[in-house]
Design a protein around this nucleic acid. Sequence first.
RNA 1: GGCGGCGUAGCCAAGUGGUAAGGCAGCGGUCUGCAAAACCGUUAUUCACCGGUUCAAAUCCGGUCGCCGCCUCCA
Length: 466
Amino acid sequence: MTIYFHNTLSKMKEEFVPINSNEVRMYTCGPTVYDFAHIGNYRAYLFEDLLRRVLQYNGYKVTQVMNLTDVDDKTIKGSQELGIPLDDFTRKFKDEFFKDLDTLRIQRAEYYPEATKHIPQMVDLVKRLIENEHAYLGEDNCYYYRVSSFEDYGKLSGKKINELICGIRVRSDDYSKDEARDFALWKSWAEEDGPVFWETDLGKGRPGWHIECSAMSTHYLGNHFDIHTGGEDNIFPHHENEIAQSEGATGEKFVNYWLHCAHLIVNGEKMSKSLGNFYTLRDLLEKGYDPVFIRLLLLSTYYRQQLNFSFEGLEATKESLNRLYDFIEWLKRVKEGEITEAVNSLVNESRRKFKESLNNDLNISPAIASIYELIKNVYSLNKEKAVTSSDAEALLNFVHEVNTILDILPEDKGDLEPELMQLITEREDARVNKDWNRADRIRDELAEKGIILEDTPDGTIWKKRG
RNA sequence: GGCGGCGUAGCCAAGUGGUAAGGCAGCGGUCUGCAAAACCGUUAUUCACCGGUUCAAAUCCGGUCGCCGCCUCCA
């Protein structure tokens, strides 16, 4: 089945054709490790997780690289404020980042290169740019990229190169360069950098931000690879500059497909600390939300659409997932019978719609809807007790297939404590004796502990609800 | 100012020319000792507003209003 992606470069939806037939190489812009990542960051990483899984679902072998920016103004500043070495400062946030990835069930990329471990590759790239006359040494001993030397500059963001010179917001910064629009490739050491510097052929200093992604992506994926992603704020200048650097150095096309995800906002406003609507993952976990609800909420809006985060939305996601979980538990209780044509065709229809939607530029809303349509249709069919155990097995298989992409099934929460099991038994006795008051009291008591009881024709079942 | 996106029920959100998916919430009913779960019915004659094109528009075109993003280091 064909996959389509919206390519920022062409501003159009295009058929996806990988460079090599069975494998996809992609670079996904990762975090700057100066603080805990917030849920807006994770929206981007979840979009990339979805992209990765959809490619795998289509049979591609995926090689993904995600960088960790562990040297820049903010990380240096942060380490100085705490009076600790840069590595110690960034280590903590790297560790927390990986913990969060696991919490959100984000699949690991193949490589997580750190900027500080790839200085030679960056230096080498800058030297090639100097040779190609795309880079120059400024009066301040910093190396800059001469934007005017790259004819295609602006092709990703749609910016007119000449308008960049005199834009209102463009200010000349502390560095001396030929033109305001030129950007730093290598920053020479300054006193405020303290112990953070590398002695290289470019002098004593540290890399500019954009150069790390050009250097590390080509190092791991080659000069020309399939997909590059990030948040939409990266389009300009970061990704525009990456193209200028990479193509300026190699003379080859850098990336075929650029995918960018829209921002997350909170209650209709931009998330910011001053508005008090700024959330990290741990903020939400502290409020008692199961991370899988957060995963699905951040995943369930089409990536090119701004996502409005709200606790109301989180509650809605939780309830809808509970419907799926109840469906699964119900399937497990269906007893016997051969597979029926009715269920078989419902599953096939749902699978078709699921995959077709995801292959259409990761359009996840109809994909999720296809699952709920299936649930509704199957329950409806069961009005005449028409659903068999073989049907249930087929449905469970499909749910697990879907789960290879969505990854939203509950963790096994284990058995109940013996004393709680005892309470359930006591309630059964009370019910047999028609002691409804006592039975209801026990049910309420368990409910307060998050244990929900349901009396079915086959006996009482319990479930834990988060 | 430049570029881009969006405005569909109480909320979230599909649908881009053929007569409004799905989820949450609500209401009525069936089932149940009562619940829960589930099912059935119901909840937008209408898609920000105004014009236009068309046999036919939420979907295309023009205009108006509102919201949001980017415009040098923020995913």
